[in-house]
Nucleic acid binder design. Sequence first.
DNA 1: CACAGATTTCATCACTTGTTGAAAATTAGC
DNA 2: GCTAATTTTCAACAAGTGATGAAATCTGTG
Lengths: 204, 204
Amino acid sequence: MTTASDQTEPKRRGRRAGGEDTKAVLLDAAREVFIARGYEGATVRSIAAKAGVDAAMVNHWFGSKENLFAQAVLKLPFDPTVLVARLLDGPPEQTGDRIARNFTTIWDATGGGPFAAIVRSVTSHDGVANVLREFFLTSVFAKITEGLDVDRVELRASLCASQVIGMGMVRYVVKFEPLASADVDTVVAAVGPNLQRYLTGDIG
Amino acid sequence: MTTASDQTEPKRRGRRAGGEDTKAVLLDAAREVFIARGYEGATVRSIAAKAGVDAAMVNHWFGSKENLFAQAVLKLPFDPTVLVARLLDGPPEQTGDRIARNFTTIWDATGGGPFAAIVRSVTSHDGVANVLREFFLTSVFAKITEGLDVDRVELRASLCASQVIGMGMVRYVVKFEPLASADVDTVVAAVGPNLQRYLTGDIG
DNA sequence: CACAGATTTCATCACTTGTTGAAAATTAGC
DNA sequence: GCTAATTTTCAACAAGTGATGAAATCTGTG
């Protein structure tokens, strides 16, 4: 709805009048459709239709559907290191709360879109599981546990990942109520302490 | 590999010699392929090939790919009520441990197959999210929280679901180490107490 | 053995997929 | 204003999808 053209006219050929960059329009449309349908479910034609251009533009501007997916979804919209810095900035005993608050806030801002897109494409696309692992484990949670002076840093990191990913699944993908609609403070109060135990508590 | 035929002969027509039930062979093959590839990724032809029969048998025995998916994957292989009974049988303060142990043991026994299959088909197939919700929320965790005499039963149920689903995602779908390879006791010691807090603890 | 019914394969349908090459229309440089 | 480069649409491809109807083959009953 955001970028579609409602015209059904015979649509004359040739270069566009000017202004809007088709490459950017395609990226937006692709992100939207990939989020809603996953990699295989999102067809090149449906993406092009939502962008209001011909399907051939995908190959012209991105070479392949594969590459469009990488550009639109796989490429992280922010730097993990600044996120880690923000999560480590504050009292160590409240790190769990900060993790819960930051992820919930960030994902809520986009309706959970990018998260859902990646999860929904975890089968279709070979690299998606690796991207997930690289981001959650290596770039974020391993960095945090390593900065906390605790034992079993890898296990603690994967446990945190399990809770954060599970929260994302329930809140944005399968949408279990009331967690799906709970406000951020409720989520932080519920999930934060459990994350804190994974980080610094006794895990057996 | 389990049910395939390695023959490349011209394969004569007509009714089979006898013995193996094609319907059951197809169900096994379907489960295997749906698990590995998701609903859209698993083609009728690939399922039939793995079963060693013609693709037309799918429509002959199940009417449609849709119905085969329902029969092979969506239909729960066990009764949720007996699971709930087992989870509630014992000291209430160890319910979290029992949940962690039971789900891990059950899923480990099948390599996490059915869980992965459902998650992987959560986009492609409209009913999958509903099946997930119906099972985890309504049939299992809501029943447990209702039997525990605590407040906010729905919120606690969805929180438990988030941790259990997250554990399943990390252990069986994206496979984050070391949680993916940790033995059951380690998982129970780590996850159990967090589930217990969601069930009977102070969640804000 | 004959024959009705069940089971299986085959050939094919209509449709959708990602991709490509050429033609048409527009813009930019001189 | 002419020309070259860029952008866009169109038409079509080969490959693959789920599904279907008929023919071929087997089984079971009489």
